[in-house]
Design a protein around this nucleic acid. Sequence first.
DNA 1: CGTTTTTGCCTTTTT
DNA 2: GGCAAAAACG
Length: 768
Amino acid sequence: MECCFPLISDYNRSMNDVAVSIDNPLLAALNPEQRQAVEATGGPLLVLAGAGTGKTRVLTTRIACILMNKLAWPDEILAVTFTNKAAREMAERIDLLLTSPSPVRGEGWGGGNISARQNTPSLTLPPAGGGNSLRWMGTFHSIGARVIRRHAEKLGLTSSFTILDVDDQLRLLKAILAELHIDEKSLPPKLFSAVIQSWKDQGLTPDNITSAQDLQAAGGQAARVYKAYQERLRSLNAADFGDLILHMLTLFTRHPGVLEEYAKRFKYILVDEYQDTNVAQYLWLRLLASFHKNICCVGDDDQSIYSWRGAEVGNILRFERDYPNARTVRLERNYRSTPHILAAASAVIANNRGRLGKTLWTHVKDGEKIRLKSVWDEREEARFIGEEVEDMQKKGIPLGGMAILVRAGFQTRAFEERFLTLGVPYRVIGGLRFYERAEIRDAVAYLRIIASPADGLAFERVINIPRRGIGQATMQQLHTVARNLNASLYNATMHLLKTGEIKGKLASSLQRFIDSCERWRKKLDELTLPEIVDLVLEESGYRAMWQQEKTPEAAGKLENLKELSRAVGEFENINNFLEHVSLVTEAANADSNADMVSLMTLHAAKGLEFDAVFLPGWEEGLFPHQRAIDESGARGLEEERRLAYVGMTRARKKLTIAHAANRRIYNQWQSSVPSRFIAEIPQEHIETLDGGVYGSAQSGGNGNWKDEVAAILGGAPKKEESHFARGARVFHQKFGYGRIESSSGGHLDIAFEKAGHKKVLADFVKPA
DNA sequence: CGTTTTTGCCTTTTT
DNA sequence: GGCAAAAACG
């Protein structure tokens, strides 16, 4: 998709070149590079902002300066982020800059400090960008939704289209697979969902699926499923997350007039976390920037950790080629970490190739070395970190200033158990989000039916929750009738009731459901939203359903429902609320101000910082993760390394890395070798703690300790089993290459590439 | 149609 | 090993 926008002119040039006044007090608080990035308001600008170098500060000051110098009105600035949190934070900080005459001085109020941040339940907050009337500040998806609603009819939708969640998507795909007679077993809906998602990330509509490789995806079925899926979405007046970007591209390329309107409007475009943009987002930005060309992208190629979600580091690497007059500013002065931490992180990331390259430095002189701890297994790891946490707390570091960052979700369990026995307060960040909880989705589905009865997916979700005696057979009948009449499930139900085709108990049950919906809809005008929610939860019997269940989970669910009815009060109407709930996905963890240790994945930690950071599980196979290497080879390994870099640079003062010799994964003991990333840290930045199994092997300080470790492991119990680790690639004389699925007592369960699944004796297999 | 049993998952997941 | 979704059963 080439940029097809012909209206390139320089009519606005003179205005853009007005220099931001030097005596601006906002600039006084910046270092020279930051100031450059803020002052270069005319033309394309790439800001390479290393971890902890104050990129949010640059972005917000830049916007504040543009406004103060009246280079543009607030609604002529487009500022895009990836998360609602980032958008909200930016809005707050711009407000602060514009209202307080003398800005807060001091080094780096750089990244977000979780203990200082109000992590309030965002369900109740208004959409970001409200306060300072920056109407076009938000996430790619929220801006997409807004643009698409405005021009919905050009895309075959109405302005009230619904945004599907992942559940809805899968349910829809499942129905389509059934219609197309595609076997769900061999080609599961999830596979199609992934392929379609990745196509949308690349900006490919069904008509654009032409490459041989794409046409073969998912057994050669993906292209036609994609087509059918998009048709179904349109007939349901719905869009999925990917569509929120893809439809904008379609809109802009098919209707140049619309593109012109937006491209002319946005005199300044700012993009946060540019390294995380996918191709579709990249194309979209390029179209919008084609007129004024005042696009400022801030990012860090070393922190690109979402390629598996379609992010293209290439976007940042090619910026200078795409915008010939682009300026590049590097932010390299780090305001967060001590020298040892910075040097270690820099040394690790230096092993990656194809970087744009930055050298972080700090004026801070002192600071501790990184501490490295070897432990026997994950229980000892948890015990060690638990002790350290208590120790640091005694020394005055609040629990809220500590975090344990893991590669994979299951790792948090050992720590949770440990903290529970120690009585150390902790919180797990990530995991199930508020709106993803089943009870919230159910309640929202009821609201969706009230707001738009044609919402068949919502109808299907709750028609039998609580139980109304409507099962598969009835649903099938409803679907058939709906298809024949070209009507919604809701209308089909009404039709069947009218004609008397459904009788008896079933009919009265359905009738009651329909009557209730009608009644609730009529009340929309008289009652407030919380009253509506309460009414629906009460009259539908949904709340009663959970009240009858006397489990602790049920109590939690009722709490969440209460929270929901409280939260809707903040919204003007039901549609505002529904839009918000589909686009905002943050956990409503109530008392986030409490002093607690944070447990999260490395991915979830991006953008945060802590006084003390613990990085457990630095073992080959887990980190770098075997699957990343298997699936993406050298590229996968480099992304794992960036993840290591992100993790290390979260720490302000204390950084502790740990690795275990043995780890139980899915109840199988697996012995492991320390992560190669540990070996990439220069010795002079490491302090090796004793007490571990092979602490002595390392303290020798020779470069060969990896071998020693392997030797020690050779003597560890269950050697045979660990020799063939789960996931390891092996070779068998008869069956060829394969991957170990499981092993027990010398018997291996192997998925061979050619021969399929086989059980074989370990003796007949050797590592590939 | 609703219950019980069996099977199949098991890296990360900004919206 | 543990959990959720499908299949089998009543």
